[in-house]
């Protein structure tokens, strides 16, 4: 019955509370609240320009890099308000990793790409072991184990994206943010990434932004649907288990969007 107790414990790893986000005078997100469950895949879907990626970038404070951005509300990571004054975004980013839309390996060897985060964070253990673990976890090891010294750009697009996932996994984050990770890949590369997401959720919490609804339906446990309301400002329309969103949406906007009646 220990198992049951474990399950009853709160499994929320990230809480978004009344989050609003501004680029200068433009409000990109309005009053968004949602809870992200640990070891689940949460998809964020919605039409272009609704603020999906902006919301995703709030989780690891990547939006701090834009000088005129402003955030209201809170994001609680475990017990930690990641936007409180005392928190250094650099630490947040080493616990909440990110993979981008286009594969962006560094112009270095495969090995050095995976080692990059370890070096930045001053890892003092066995690099070879950690790099092998990250590459195995990202399902790339068998394809690259004999050519770790090759330049990362000698890999195919899909392999490069899995290398970027390995690079993020190497520093052992708790959460991985995927920002439309397959939009630059062919169907085979896409399937491999989706399979990978299904495996990775055993060890990590995954939040994935996608404009491909089938993908959200295939890989995610929960889905958040965003829409830009008045003034092109993104609002959260519906957040529920993926099967409910796609089979029995509560909101008319959600139904319109997933059935393609939305233009």
């Amino acid at each position: 019955m220990i198992l049951n107790n474990e399950q009853n414990k709160s499994n929320i790893i990230l809480r978004v509370k009344n989050l609003s986000f501004y680029y200068g005078a433009f409000q990109a997100l309005k009053n968004i609240s949602l809870d992200i469950e640990a070891n689940k895949v949460t998809a964020i879907i919605g039409p272009s320009g609704c603020g999906k990626s902006t919301l995703l970038r709030c989780f690891n404070r990547m939006n701090d890099l834009f000088s005129k951005s402003k955030l209201e509300g809170q994001i609680i990571f475990d017990d930690l308000d990641i936007y409180s004054q005392s928190i250094d975004p650099v630490l947040i980013r080493s616990k909440i990793g990110m993979v981008f839309q286009k594969p962006n390996p560094f112009p270095k060897s495969i090995y050095d790409n995976v080692a990059f985060g370890l070096r930045i964070n001053g890892f003092a253990g066995n690099y070879d072991e950690e790099i092998e673990r990250a590459l195995i976890q990202s399902a790339l090891w068998d394809e690259v184990k004999d050519r770790l010294k090759d330049n990362a750009y000698s890999l195919s697009g899909g392999q490069q994206q899995r290398l970027c996932i390995a690079r993020a996994l190497a520093i052992r984050p708790d959460v991985i943010l995927l920002d439309e990770p397959t939009s630059a890949l062919d169907p085979i590369g896409t399937v491999k990434i989706e399979d990978l997401v299904n495996v990775l959720k055993n060890d990590y919490t995954i939040i994935i932004v996608t404009h491909n609804m089938q993908q959200a339906a295939r890989v995610s446990d929960k889905t958040a649907f965003l829409l830009s309301g008045e003034d092109r400002c993104g609002i959260l329309i519906e957040y529920d288990y993926t099967k409910n969103i796609f089979s029995n949406p509560k909101m008319k906007e959600t139904e319109d969007y997933i059935t393609g009646r939305f233009s």
């Binding site: 990547m62 980013r93 990793g97 962006n104 560094f106 985060g117 070096r119 930045i120």
Partner: peptide
Amino acid sequence: PRAHREAAFALGGDKWQVVKMAVLP
């Protein structure tokens, strides 16, 4: 490319590490 900067930041690099390890090379 901006993507290289972002990748380095997303791995927990601080400003100087991003400049030294991703931008300057």
